[in-house]
Amino acid sequence: MRADDVDDDDDLPDRRATLARLARASVPWISIGVLLLAWELCVRGFRIPDYLLPAPSEVWSQTWALKAAVAGHTLATLKTIAFGFGLAVAISLPLAVLVTSSPAVAATVYPVLVLVQSVPKVALAPVLVVALGANEMPRIVVTFLVCFFPLVISVAAGLLSVPSEYIELCRSCRASRWRELVRVRMPCAVPFLFSGLKVAITLSVVGAVVGEFVAADEGLGYLIQSSTAFFKTPLAFGAIVILALIGIVLFQAVVAIERAFFPWSVSDERFRD
């Protein structure tokens, strides 16, 4: 009996904590729900026409009605994001290593990077279509260009952020530059890499849509353009909502990967003192 009592005592605060956590987690959902409800009521109450501002229910029903087509467009956009983002990761990591390898290389490469970054990608997109043809390449390249710069900068900053004691330890062990890079600099850059990835994954969604606006026959950006052209505003809203969901899910995926594989990077002691 006594053991049970103790168990109950232990359980109670636990249960209370779980309830409190549930309550806290439900707050954002409740506020979104209230917002949607207010939106719905406003549109119906003031009789706002669909093509100006569709009610959430209308957005849902029209998007759902075309679910197969919408799914196809979503897949196309996801593909662009995946290739563009993947390309950015594959190119920016070695580039960051190269930039940080010596001051001379940095002085050569940095101005070019800044120049590329200073060009508005939206302005570049039509030119890319001319150069690369009306296929998916210009979209992938725009996505790549939008998200690779923050990646290079953050990884390079990470590789250079190594505390001087770590470097002294490497030098006192007469570690080669390669060993210093792999054993010390790269792990040190992981938290920076992930802050870069979080920025880049969000930007990659923007990049993909920009690319699709300029030249595409599929994708959510194309869906928005084509449906607004025919005043099918609810469908455009549906595509926007899906884009927002893609952004959120991909961002959270990056966060989850960091938590799962680099837990030490998430709550990093080094930034406390």
Partner: peptide, 18 residues
């Protein structure tokens, strides 16, 4: 130059967090 017959302890532990 740096020598391997030396062990160094710094003011901060400077352990690798990973």
């Amino acid at each position: 130059g740096p020598r391997e017959d030396v062990g160094i302890v710094f003011q901060k532990p400077t352990l690798f967090p990973w």
